[in-house]
């Protein structure tokens, strides 16, 4: 009887401790990278691309990544973006989509080839946005924002191609798409109709915009000499908060 009492007592004592520990771990923030990264984190896995291979690491162990898989992904892979159980890979000539139904076994679903260029990709809902940048080390001469319907991941359908000056990275937040158009500035599109982005404005700041991360109501922009922070509580109307350039 006494043992049972102790057991019940200790269970009550332990319960709140267990709960607070639980809530603490769920409070740990999830990070976010840009659109031009070679790393993508999803669940307990880190996906890494080099020019030809997609590596899958289990990162649940304390700081000791365990290689789980290595998948041949194509040529000249430059970027990876994880979204909704899928991986979107940008190469210098194509967009590749892998499904992650089994997180350690990415399965190649489709590829859309385009003209030679550099091409980061971001996705929201069933729409993938890709920028193509020609010139310099990227090859090709196309500079455009491409919009694909990826509802059927086995057959992405091109919905729009919008000429740009020389776009780099891009980011999406609700009804707004932000495209870094190099020295031209940061272009904001209305994507309420995601297949037909409507250009709203280009924010010029005398600097080169390379990539953006929309994160917790803030748009963090990587510019040639540092970073700029914008308030995007109204996603279509970014307001410059500060710049860190020294």
């Amino acid at each position: 009887m006494r043992t049972v009492l102790y057991f019940i007592l200790s269970a009550f004592l332990l319960l709140p401790a267990a709960c607070s520990k639980e809530s603490k771990s769920t409070q740990q923030p999830t990070g976010k990278g840009g659109s031009m990264a070679r790393f993508a984190l999803a669940g307990n896995y880190l996906y890494v691309v080099n020019t030809t291979w997609l590596h899958v690491y289990d990162v649940s162990e304390n700081g000791q990544p365990v290689i789980k898989n290595k998948v041949n992904a194509g040529w000249n892979i430059e970027t990876i973006f994880a979204y909704d159980n899928k991986l979107f890979l940008g190469s210098s000539s194509a967009l590749y989509i892998f499904s992650l139904n089994d997180p350690v076994t990415p399965v190649w679903e489709s590829g859309v080839t385009h003209l030679r260029s550099c091409d980061p990709v971001v996705t929201q809902g069933n729409t993938a946005f890709v920028t193509l940048r020609g010139g310099s080390t990227c090859g090709g001469t196309t500079n455009a924002l491409m919009v694909y319907d990826v509802t059927d991941i086995k057959a992405p359908a091109l919905k729009a191609s919008i000429p740009m000056k020389g776009p780099y990275g891009l980011g999406v937040q609700d009804s707004a798409l932000y495209v870094c158009d190099g020295a031209d500035g940061l272009t904001v599109f209305d994507i309420k109709s995601p297949h037909a982005p409507r250009k709203l404005q280009t924010i010029e700041g005398g600097d080169m915009y390379i990539d953006v991360i929309p994160y917790n109501g803030v748009l963090i922009a990587y510019v040639r000499n540092g970073v700029r922070f914008f308030d995007i509580s109204k996603p279509q109307e970014p307001v410059l908060l500060s710049a860190l350039m020294d």
Binding site: T30, G33, I213, V218, Y222, N225, G226, D246
Partner: peptide
């Protein structure tokens, strides 16, 4: 130190890594 050749970024919580 000073930023000379800025590179990729990653945000987590209220920290930014560049």
């Amino acid at each position: 130190r000073q930023t000379d050749s800025a590179g990729k970024i990653f945000a987590i919580g209220e920290k930014l890594f560049q």
